[in-house]
Design a protein around this nucleic acid. Structure first.
Lengths: 185, 185, 185, 185
DNA sequence: CATGAATGAGTATTCATTCAT
DNA sequence: AATGAATGAATACTCATTCAT
């Protein structure tokens, strides 16, 4: 059950993410975050040691969130083609439903001073375990994890970043087909 | 009258890029850039209207640079397989040789307040013209430009960002093979 | 929570007025004001939104102060001649006793960017109410409020500004006599 | 005959006055003055030693200008009543016709760091010489020069500063009548 | 004479953080 | 636990002035 204090901590994180989407990583000062969250600046320092601590904690948490979301979209019983479609569409859906958090994580992941806090590779280990099983059973082509992540997630992120250019559905359908041809045996 | 020193302007841009790699987009203040470039803060405002002007001008310029570099790696006479290999390896080589600039552009491209200054799509139009010819002649499978960019460039960028994890060469060779299978008819 | 220190706010205002007297409106920078008031520059922004806010708030307050002072010098029961003398001498005494504030208000009132914050006319409305009563009872000649303010206050301010030229008392006595002749029936 | 350089110097002065009216004494920086005058900042330093030199030279020149203008409105043969009317109306006309210069001089005159450059008293000495003659011939009441300046000029300046409040003509007519009653024997 | 480039010192304002309540 | 006050150091930017041409 959510306690009152957990809510406050949550509000702080969300305020920061919201601000960073609106004004970029520079625009999110501690005072603004506090104002947006409806707390005093000093209160933030009860929950976090420093601004960097707040940023990195939120980055760590939210970086895993998209893969947890993905984990809920897939089931071990799925066929391989179905699995690929679920991943692509599920990941894209996440970027739409959690636009702010997605943008926040992308910014953090590309900032050298923050990137080291999170290893992208290990975020998706749950999904990779499943893929390995499919590969072992010959349902998916074998390839290195790095390249699997590269072709499965990076293109979807690219489409999500450039969302405004055209309707998403045809592009998604095409991408699913391409990745199925690439990864199915 | 003293004449304008274009080398100085270059030094300012490079100092900024250098700083942003080291300290992230937050750490690059005008004074630090000036100190790094060996000029007075006021001098920066002779060449640029504002910090945002400096950032966006450099972003615009460098965003095109990688594709110009790529343009020099490919030749119209190449076979389709060779073309894909040249693009993947050429793009990756660029990220290694111009690490700072690559990181700078990636950060800008993911920052909402800066991203709008550059349309990623139009940066690579020269290369796309060539791909369209190959597609028209049946040497490459047809697909939308968005997805072509998504599968050709995004995975390479992903590998480049996570360079430290393992040796690059095997991963590159594998990625080239995957993309050839994906895009060749 | 630390409580707000209204003495501190007062010190800030006084420091600004003091500085503006010594160095003119140009010389009163926020840092100098802060140093003079013994606070940090940032503290000023707790009490005022901006430098302009500080200036205009002080201007508004002090512009009324001289007329409040005057209000205490006069009594409804006075004779008309006595009233004029009290006003002239009272106003002059104020400029001597509150030299800094007088100079500050004069500077603000003549600066186009600040003048609009205060309407000189309405500052002295309390006194004008009394004058109107005297005029209604035929104890003072009738004239427009604008000209009444023009001949009652402007000459005294003029003498106050050029104080150094000669002893004040004879000039004041003469001015009182002139204004009595002018305004008494 | 105006030489080319005289024109340039004139343009600089006018640009400064224009800027000070628009943006107050703080807003008139050397660069802005230069831009407004269409010259380089460095050029200003050919004609003036410093910004203060520019300000004080212009102040000195323009402070005399209104009284020179006044000098042209009056003639020794005038009657005393006519003389007072000419002075009041002439002075007021000047403030309307040379609004920018009038505002500039007023600002300078009330700024402690600039006021000392010009003695208001000696600016109007020409007019005072004439007044003394009228006084000697019994056509004007005798009073000290300070009070004469105080009642003749300060009220007109006050009306000019508060011009927007109501039509000027009735107020001027009334003021002329008041001053005639005050100063005629 | 005239210029635009150059700058150290300054501008108003905001920062991340701590203090006292 | 929570707060708004307080701040030294930083922010982006401008200043008056000088330099080299």
């Amino acid at each position: 059950m959510r306690t009152r204090d957990y809510d406050k901590q949550q509000r702080i994180k969300e305020a920061m993410v919201h601000l960073i989407l609106r004004e970029g990583i520079n625009g999110a000062s501690v005072s603004k975050i506090a104002r947006e969250a409806g707390v005093s600046p000093a209160t933030i320092y009860i929950y976090y040691e420093s601004k960097e601590d707040l940023l990195s904690a939120a980055f760590r948490e939210y970086a895993h969130q998209s893969y947890q979301y993905l984990g809920r979209q897939i089931r071990p019983g799925m066929g391989a083609a179905e699995l690929i479609e679920a991943i692509v569409r599920g990941y894209y859906a996440y970027t739409v439903e959690h636009e702010e958090i997605f943008s926040f994580v992308e910014q953090c992941a590309h900032c050298p001073t923050l990137a080291e806090y999170v290893s992208q590779q290990e975020c998706c280990c749950g999904i990779f375990d499943l893929m390995h099983q499919y590969q072992a059973r010959g349902l998916l082509r074998r390839c290195s994890d790095a390249n699997l992540a590269a072709v499965l997630f990076a293109p979807v992120r690219f489409l999500a970043m450039n969302r405004k250019s055209g309707p998403a559905e045809p592009q998604l359908r095409e991408l699913v087909a391409m990745l199925q041809r690439l990864l199915l045996p």
